[in-house]
């Protein structure tokens, strides 16, 4: 008798419960470089793979996902507000130094202006500056030189208006070579500072 009542009450609750799921839509979009990835949409153990640009999975009334193909224009219009709120893409820049100094090469001076333009576009940039050296000199010397280069870059950024607390620096010495060389080989491309902006 008790079980019957529970079953009856259960049935009534299910019948009276409103449809508690709103409609859902998932759309795969190409990245800024045109690359199309993949997203697996799983509902009630049923998996749907989206791997074409603007392929979409739509769930209506809590039913099974239906795959459809949307147009780029419709998607860009429908999702305009959320797309415009995406933060700027993280970017990485390299500047190079004259041998055994924290002086920029002439080309890097010019590159630096581009980096500043990029930073000014971002509301509140986070910057990570990592200094490197080539293999001329011992580890201790190069650790010091790489940090000095990073400090030099931070100084330039601060003087151009980036708040100091937004910049983290590190010196990696000769541990992370861009071009592998034997010890004591001068290599301009290893004498660099990475500026990661996000």
């Amino acid at each position: 008798m008790g079980a019957l009542i529970v079953a009856l009450v259960g049935t009534i609750v299910v019948l009276l419960a409103p449809n508690r799921l709103g409609d859902e839509l998932v759309v795969l979009v190409p990245s800024t470089d045109g690359h199309v990835g993949a997203v697996v949409v799983e509902r009630s153990r049923q998996k749907t793979v989206l791997n074409q640009a603007y392929a979409a999975s739509r769930i209506v009334d809590g039913g099974a996902p239906q795959v459809e193909q949307l147009s780029a224009g419709d998607v860009r219009t429908e999702f305009a507000l959320v797309l415009s709120a995406l933060p700027g893409r993280p970017k990485s820049f390299l500047v190079y130094f004259l041998e055994a100094t924290d002086e920029f090469t002439e080309e890097s001076r010019i590159e630096f202006n581009k980096i500043m333009a990029e930073l000014r576009e971002r509301g509140d940039p986070d910057v990570v500056v990592i200094g490197h050296t080539d293999r001329v000199g011992n580890d201790q010397y190069n650790d010091r030189l790489s940090l000095q280069r990073a400090e030099r870059v931070r100084g330039e950024l601060v003087s151009l208006g980036i708040p100091e607390p937004r910049i983290r620096i590190a010196g990696r010495g000769e541990r992370e070579l861009l071009i592998a060389t034997d010890d004591e080989v001068p290599e301009p491309r290893n004498r660099r500072v990475e500026i990661n902006v996000r």
């Binding site: 998932v26 990835g37 993949a38 809590g62």
Partner: peptide
């Protein structure tokens, strides 16, 4: 209603 497994990179 669902769970998305992300293999990369951009979706809405």
């Amino acid at each position: 209603a669902a769970v998305m497994g992300v293999r990369g990179t951009e979706f809405l």
